[in-house]
Amino acid sequence: MKVFKTSTENLIKLLRPDLGRFEDTVTPYCNYSQKEFSSFLEKLNLDIEGEISNDEALAISSIKKSLHLLTIKNHDVPIDRMEFDYAIIFHKELKKVGYSKNHIDNHAMWRWMSLNHFLKEVLARRAQKLIDRKDLGGAAKSIFTHCFGEKTRDIFPRRYFLIGERLHDKEKGYALLEKLAEKSRFEKSGGFGNLINNIIETSLLSPNDFVSKIMAKILLTGGKPADDKQVAKAFVRYNGFKKRLLSSAVEQVFEQEVCLL
């Protein structure tokens, strides 16, 4: 995969939308096609290293196709309720080409991939409503925030690969993610967003990502999913038990002491 070698500070200076330079920094995010946007990036003479392999190119094209099909199949579901579907798609395809936890912190790689391949997907997920309201400045800012990812947790493909890494299981495969995807698509409420924020941001080091999985399962796959507050409080409780090694505790302990519904 290709990697930006230009420093993050310089990339931000060059790519952050600025209403004072509307044509140069806002229009590309809102009006350019992916091809035009990639040419725009090329003209900036950014320092880039590496090559994209055939397998990686195929994986990206397969991800884009699956995301498109997902949107068509669920045209009546708001796009922001399909986070776990996105995670399954990204994780499945990138795993096939050998991506692992080792790649998670290669932010320059994720940023290159995101800007050069997922501009339109980020626009649909994060900025369409703003564009509909003719707020192009806000839309460009939102696309920059989630496509470039000023905060690394926001980089579009990385976010979904990371959710996939946390919740995919060697033995049970994507069963938990599929259940969460189904629930989040059809439930009217639930703390799915908070779950994602917590599993992406906290360290939660546990064997086979056990803590992420068990908390996701208890909180959000039961009859009535936990709401935002309940999810947030469960993670606060977990982090509060510093004197106990709950990273492989039995499900009962989580049910009785951490994930209180």
Binding site: S100, I104, D105, E165, S203, P207, N208, S247
Partner: peptide, 16 residues
Amino acid sequence: IRIQASCKKSKWCSAQ
């Protein structure tokens, strides 16, 4: 006694 290996950077943790 429980022993585990973990990697803070990649957030990997071994079986305990």
